[in-house]
């Protein structure tokens, strides 16, 4: 920490300088009047620093917080872990760059885990931007770290189809009606790993990473619920979505990763099992992102407490007068 302060003094100086006018206002007008009339842009600025400084600190030092996986993250991990080499895993990437901050690390960890297990990966998307997320996963993980995996034999990108839940409704009984080709335009019949696949009931597990509609809820409703003995699903969801999916656990959804914390827990499990002592830092993305989370969460708590202190002091003052 001391080294960081000494070497990166300019960052701290910039932060302090930017907040000088606020401090001056506090000293000039007093704490209470300043807080009561606080311009929201000061809150924006403080939030900016609360996220930026930890990112910078972790980026420079490489330090991260230890993660203790929750039972739900372990259940998700175990769902993939129990699969055998060559088993079929459907990876539905239903998210876009707007939620990549939360879901990108999950996607990375899922693909790494599946590739380590030598599963056969079937990528698809219900979001129009999903194919780009799939391309990122293939280009940055499979092609770089698992070059022995062969397209068409070990993994295939089926791409995007429009229709939201309508797509799930079709592919649970007839995949080939909609997916006549893969994303590259190769006929499904010419792809070796598609041989004998008629519908997604033949998948050994479905992993859905979703940022909203359509997403895990629709996969539960249209795939798992009608075929509970044949389709098993685990999900990764954004912070907004995750609490809404808890009623499905565990009967309809045996595993769920919620927001960046869920990603960090799962990441730590995958790295502990397959990362070795020298894990590539690209597989520590969620763990790094937990730093800014900590400071920003504390800031939010601080803001709520400060606002309530003002509220109750004012109420007491009004009651007295």
């Amino acid at each position: 920490m001391a080294d960081f302060v000494l070497n990166q003094w300019w960052l701290l100086a910039a932060m302090i300088l930017s907040l000088v006018p606020l401090v001056l206002q506090f000293t000039r007008d007093g704490v209470m009047p300043t807080l009561e009339t606080l311009d929201r842009r000061w809150i924006f600025l403080i939030m900016f620093w609360a996220v930026l400084v930890p990112i910078y600190y972790i980026g420079v030092t490489g330090e991260t917080f230890p993660e203790t996986p929750s039972a739900l993250a372990e259940a998700t991990f175990e769902e993939i872990e129990r699969l055998e080499e060559g088993d079929r895993l459907l990876l539905a990437f239903d998210f876009d760059p707007a939620s990549e901050g939360e879901l990108g690390p999950m996607a990375t960890a899922f693909v790494k885990h599946a590739a380590e297990k030598r599963l056969r990966l079937y990528f698809m998307a219900l979001w129009p931007i999903g194919p780009q997320m799939i391309a990122d996963a293939i280009n940055e993980i499979i092609l770089v770290d698992y070059p022995d995996m062969v397209y068409g034999e070990d993994y295939v990108n089926l791409g995007f189809k429009s229709g939201n839940e309508g797509v799930i409704k079709v592919i649970v009984t007839n995949l080939r009606e909609l997916y006549t080709t893969d994303a590259r335009g190769t006929a499904i019949g010419d792809i070796p790993m598609m041989e004998g696949i008629e519908n997604i009931q033949q998948m050994d597990l479905v992993v859905n990473i979703s940022a909203g509609y359509p997403g895990t809820k629709e996969w539960v409703q249209y795939a798992v619920t009608p075929y509970p003995d044949r389709i098993r699903l685990v999900g990764g969801a954004t912070g907004v979505q995750a609490p809404l999916l808890y009623p499905y656990i565990p009967e309809q959804l045996p595993g769920l990763l919620g927001a960046i914390k869920g990603a960090a827990e799962y990441e730590s499990l995958v790295n502990a099992a397959y990362g070795g002592d020298d894990t590539d830092p690209k597989y520590l993305e969620a763990l790094r992102r937990m730093g800014p989370q900590l400071v920003a969460h504390l800031l939010i708590i601080g803001l709520i407490i400060a606002a309530n202190v003002i509220f109750f002091l004012n109420r007491r003052r009004v009651a007295r007068s």
């Binding site: 707007a98 931007i129 939010i300 606002a307």
Partner: peptide, 27 residues
């Protein structure tokens, strides 16, 4: 264009939620 624009649009919500936390929540 698409990635920076849409991702930053959604990132803005973090700032507004901080402001809302200060202004809206009263016990």
């Amino acid at each position: 264009a698409f990635v920076p624009l849409t991702a930053t649009m959604f990132a803005m919500l973090a700032f507004y939620i901080a402001s809302a936390a200060f202004r809206a929540f009263r016990a």
